[in-house]
Amino acid sequence: MMNCQGCRDDLVAYLDEELEQSMQAQVEDHLERCVSCRQEHDSLRQSYEFTETYLSSLEPSPYLWTRISAGLRGEPMPVRAPWSWLAARISNSAVAVRLAAVAILVLGVGSSWLFYHERKLTGQARQEMVQFVADWEGLDVSRVNPFLARHEHPVDELEANPFIDLHHHDIKNPFRHEER
């Protein structure tokens, strides 16, 4: 008959279904009779269930096969996804802080430059743009918001575009000052 030590030594193998049938029967028999081994069994089984439930797993990225097949075809093998070097470095918090600082600096300088550039455009170029929008919209120059007046496409091109209905649209015009 199996004793407690023998039962406990085989509990994990029992839960993994690795015991031979006769041993399995002996463990089961012991568990039915021994409260303390049954508690040990139950707590082990609970931890099995816990890890099973909360275990996370990775999904292979679709890019991985591309890398492998490129390597097997003898093409130069990309080492990683182009962005992964950054991801790997960002995961290092010290580098992440530095990157964030650089990003803030670039954004700050960039937006200041844009703002300055926008304000500077008060000369002839701005006037020409305002005039262009006013003509196009059939408005008085004074009613065109100079900071929104910008057009990248020649009107002809827009006229020719079958997807844009210049004459029958009902969209609020951002160039037009709201009538008060």
């Binding site: 990775l58 991985l64 492998i68 990683r80 992964s84 790997a88």
Partner: peptide
């Protein structure tokens, strides 16, 4: 993750 991807690639190759 990066090492896992690199070594998976090497394994299959």
């Amino acid at each position: 993750v990066a090492d896992a991807e690199d070594l998976t690639q090497e394994t299959f190759v």
